[in-house]
């Protein structure tokens, strides 16, 4: 489904050449929840950007859903990104002067759906994250956790194969972080593949697979069992919320 082989990414300035990824190889299968960890500057975000086709790479091959990404032009990459990938960012990246409905609408507009279909998808996505009552609100009228849920709704509205999450709980307090994490797990259980970059070891342990990156290379794979099952996690969130 996603296969990277010997990917190399070098950032060059006049004075410095930085090898962000060196012979990076990875395969992610359908339905997996993969956590990517590593120290700052290790290449996690570069990996995520290349996965999302926001960055090009210098050498290697990247197959996404049986398509060789390096052979695609910008229009084809944008179309593929729009159809197959949903992004969730640490700082939510909602567009401040669009209300929730219009924010979730953004990827659907580029997809070319009819107005009726877009409306249906937006309402379903916001319903799924529990914010359907606040469609006409602006992002600034929501808490951080709610904003991240809108970002998740936006990522989900196009029914992508992958969710790429870059520190999705990095700007949230522990309660909201757990709620968001719980939501991501539910989404994964419903079949969406998730690749999540995180610094949080506890969150990483909740993924099915943990990939540790150091100096632009995969240093360790771990196949993990979830720390808590879903029911236990819900109970724990409720406990924290009550406290």
């Amino acid at each position: 489904m996603l296969k990277m082989t010997n990917i190399k990414k070098i950032f060059r300035t006049d004075l410095v050449e930085t090898h962000a990824l060196r012979n990076f190889s990875l395969e992610v299968n359908e339905g997996e929840f993969v956590a990517v960890t590593g120290p700052s500057g290790s290449g996690k975000t570069t990996f995520l950007n290349i996965t999302g086709m926001l960055e090009t790479f210098n050498s290697g091959t990247y197959m996404l859903d049986d398509k060789d990404v390096s052979q695609l032009n910008d229009n084809q990459r944008s179309k593929l990104r729009n159809e197959k990938i949903g992004f969730i960012f640490q700082s939510f990246n909602l567009i401040p002067d669009l209300n929730l409905f219009d924010n979730v609408d953004v990827p659907l507009r580029y997809r070319g759906f009819s107005a009726k279909e877009r409306k249906q998808r937006i309402e379903n996505a916001l319903e799924r994250v529990g914010l359907s009552a606040r469609m006409k609100h602006l992002p600034s009228q929501l808490s951080g956790g709610q904003q991240q849920r809108v970002a998740i709704a936006r990522a989900l509205a196009g029914e992508p194969l992958f969710l790429l999450a870059d520190e999705p709980t990095g700007n949230l307090d522990s309660l909201m972080a757990r709620q968001v994490m719980q939501l991501l797990e539910e989404i994964n259980q419903q079949g969406t593949t998730i690749i999540m970059v995180t610094h949080d070891a506890e969150l990483a342990r909740r993924a099915q697979r943990n990939i540790h990156i150091v100096d632009g290379q995969v240093s360790d794979y771990q196949q993990l069992q979830p720390v808590l099952d879903a029911q236990e996690e819900s109970e724990k969130v409720a406990e924290i919320a009550k406290a």
């Binding site: 179309k79 992004f87 953004v106 580029y110 997809r111």
Partner: peptide, 16 residues
């Protein structure tokens, strides 16, 4: 530019 970055990430092509 940041908004453009988001739109690109969400599937907008350069021509769009």
């Amino acid at each position: 530019a940041p908004e453009v970055g988001v739109r690109r990430a969400l599937g907008a092509s350069r021509s769009q």
